[in-house]
């Protein structure tokens, strides 16, 4: 699993670079973020949650059964919305209230 960063959306704020626990995200000559070591991603999605413009999305590698869906999050107050775009265009949204604990 790894992430992909949409350069046309990236505003170069550097938040994803800051949080990456592997220091895997760097900035290019235009100040935009890119993942320098895609194979070294742990899949923690810290960068995804930081991105204010939804430019960072994560996906499962084909070697672990990935089918090409891309996931980003949208933060709305206490709600963290996970948006999953399947490769056939279908979109699922799952809202999680940060103030509610897990049932399990």
């Amino acid at each position: 699993m790894s992430i992909t960063i949409d350069k046309s959306k990236c505003i170069g704020c550097g938040k994803c670079r800051t949080v990456c626990p592997g220091s895997l995200i760097k900035k290019d000559e235009n100040g935009k973020a890119f993942i320098k070591y895609p194979k070294d991603c742990w899949g923690c999605t810290s960068c995804v949650k930081e991105c204010p413009v939804h430019a960072v999305r994560f996906y499962l590698g084909a070697d672990i059964g990935g089918m090409g869906s891309l996931v980003h999050t949208e933060s709305m107050g206490d709600i963290l919305r996970w948006v999953i775009e399947k490769s056939d265009g279908e979109i699922s949204k799952i809202d999680i209230n940060r103030k509610e604990s897990n049932k399990y």
């Binding site: 699993m1 790894s2 592997g22 895609p38 194979k39 070294d40 991603c41 742990w42 899949g43 499962l60 590698g61 084909a62 070697d63 672990i64």
Partner: peptide, 9 residues
């Protein structure tokens, strides 16, 4: 998975 997802551990 030692390939692309080697760090999915």
């Amino acid at each position: 998975n030692p390939g692309f997802s080697r760090h999915k551990m």
